[in-house]
């Protein structure tokens, strides 16, 4: 399992560490340093704390080069992570190399906002009150019941696809539409695209994905 250091804006990692460690159940713990800049001393303290709690440290990832270099210097298995940091949301975004796709595993709950410059593929629901926005497409493998914005920097060819498309509000580029109020047809993925400046919903078109 992965131990994530807290958001720098919220807590200092030293304060949260005992608590985070007490929640770890597995022997091997990977460490995600997030945005923290940690020197060798910090990392040594971290290692000691992990070992003291009876765990074994696995991989270390971080977004800050200094952290990764320090970790390597200590002989730890360290690598850069390139997950976007500018979110209050912690759960597991994974990117494949050289991809235009951001994969997010998990439901967005009310108040969450997932934002990316890449096409977002979300495995889970977007609940009412949550927002998902991308400069490219938004693909939801689940129920879209919140607010979705595709092409948020003006791309009018962007589209929104969901297994169940019942959003509060849809936006594509500058266009805004309220979600449909009737109940969805069961078992039919739908997509929203911009047609003559107006957002239109229709059954999802598989062909348009195969071009990529």
């Amino acid at each position: 399992m992965t131990l994530r250091l807290p958001d720098q804006r919220l807590d200092h990692w030293r304060d949260r560490l005992p608590d985070l460690l007490s929640r770890c159940s597995q022997p091997i713990v990977d460490l995600d340093c997030g945005d923290w800049t940690l020197n060798c001393n910090d990392l040594a303290d971290l290692c000691a704390a992990v070992t003291e709690a009876g765990h074994q440290l696995g991989r270390i990832t971080g977004r800050v080069p200094e952290t990764v270099v320090s970790a390597s210097a200590l002989g730890l298995d360290a690598s850069r992570s390139n997950t976007p940091s500018n979110r209050e949301l912690q759960p597991n975004p994974v990117t494949t190399p050289a991809s235009h796709l951001l994969f997010h595993n998990g439901t967005l709950r009310s108040g969450d906002h997932l934002q990316s410059e890449r096409t977002i593929l979300l495995y889970g629901d977007v609940n009412p009150g949550a927002r998902i926005s991308s400069t490219a497409d938004v693909l939801v493998w689940g129920r879209l019941r919140g607010v979705a914005h595709a092409g948020c920097e003006g791309s009018t060819t962007a589209k929104i696809v969901a297994l169940q498309l019942r959003p509060l509000q849809l936006r594509i580029a500058e266009a805004v539409a309220r979600g449909p109020e009737d109940l969805p047809q069961a078992g039919l993925a739908e997509q929203a695209t911009l047609k003559d400046g107006v957002i239109a919903i229709e059954p999802a078109d598989i062909q348009s994905f195969q071009k990529r």
Partner: peptide
């Protein structure tokens, strides 16, 4: 809605 936020 509020419960959903709290769960998150």
């Amino acid at each position: 809605r509020d419960a959903d936020r709290v769960i998150g």
